[in-house]
């Protein structure tokens, strides 16, 4: 038996779906941020595997470069998300998304 692209796609699909489940069920801002990280990792698994299996020449690593930029995005998102959590704390002293309802959802 060999590991092919299908295996990686199914694994990343599973990870992505778990992330979506978390997004829909969680209410805590930090927990939601973690679910987004899961989804971004699914993307990265996909990109790297596609790059390996579908690109005949290993030196053309478009997928890996793409994945590196996704990591850049994740870092930026985490740092801004963290700052927003702090700002919300300062103003409201609460962090669960559905407890915040000055504005209707």
């Amino acid at each position: 038996m060999e590991i092919g692209l299908s295996h990686y796609l199914i694994l990343s699909g599973l990870l992505f779906a778990i992330g979506i489940y978390g997004i829909l069920t969680r209410r805590n801002a930090i927990a939601l941020l973690m679910c987004v990280e899961l989804m971004l990792n699914a993307v990265n698994i996909n990109l790297v595997a596609i790059n390996r299996f579908l690109q005949p020449d290993w030196r053309i690593m478009t997928g890996q470069i793409f994945a590196a930029f996704v990591i850049v995005l994740a870092a930026a998102e985490a740092c801004v998300g963290f700052a927003l959590v702090i700002a919300i704390y300062r103003n409201l002293n609460r962090i669960n998304v559905d407890e915040i309802n000055l504005l209707k959802w």
Binding site: L5, S6, H7, Y8, L9, I10, S12, G13, L14, F16, A17, I18, I20, Y21, L24
Partner: peptide, 15 residues
């Protein structure tokens, strides 16, 4: 339900 749907779609693509 949503997660299952998404997974089914992607798994179908993968297979």
């Amino acid at each position: 339900a949503a997660a299952t749907l998404v997974f089914a779609l992607i798994a179908f693509l993968g297979i």
